[in-house]
């Protein structure tokens, strides 16, 4: 076996000469691109990422706590649904009927919002005075 750290044989020396020759023949365009790549790498290493990382790591626990509080508030303040899933299903069927009903759509064409609001308040007033 040829010990790697011993002096090179003729074959190895010749191979080295050839390889170094091929390196010296690398064209200008490739050299220029390697040069650009090197400068890009050095610039990237010098880019101010540290401050950004410091801020992001510092804010991360605070953001986590805020998100957890928000989720807790939403869950506790949400009104429980009084309707069973079966009833909700019935409403869905009714909605489908309304949508499929062509008369309903015609009614929507002549929608008179203020009138119905007035009629609704009148009705509520009558109920209250009756009570």
């Amino acid at each position: 076996m040829n010990p790697v750290n011993e002096p090179l044989t003729d074959f190895e020396r010749n191979a080295r000469v050839l390889l170094e020759e091929s390196v010296s023949r690398i064209d200008g365009r490739t050299r220029s691109r390697l040069n650009q790549a090197r400068h890009a790498a050095l610039e990237a290493a010098a880019a101010p990422r540290r401050a950004w990382r410091w801020r992001s790591y510092t804010l991360m626990p605070a953001a986590g706590v805020a998100a957890a509080l928000l989720v807790t508030l939403v869950l506790f303040n949400r009104e429980p649904s009084v309707e069973s899933p079966v009833l909700e299903g019935q409403h869905a069927v009714e909605d489908m009927d309304l949508l499929a009903d062509s008369e309903g759509l015609e009614l929507m064409d002549g929608w008179d919002g203020p009138f119905y609001e007035w009629a609704s308040t009148e009705n509520e007033g009558n109920v209250a005075s009756d009570g």
Partner: peptide, 8 residues
């Protein structure tokens, strides 16, 4: 190029 970037 990638190796340079990663090393740097």
């Amino acid at each position: 190029q990638d190796a340079m970037l990663q090393l740097a």
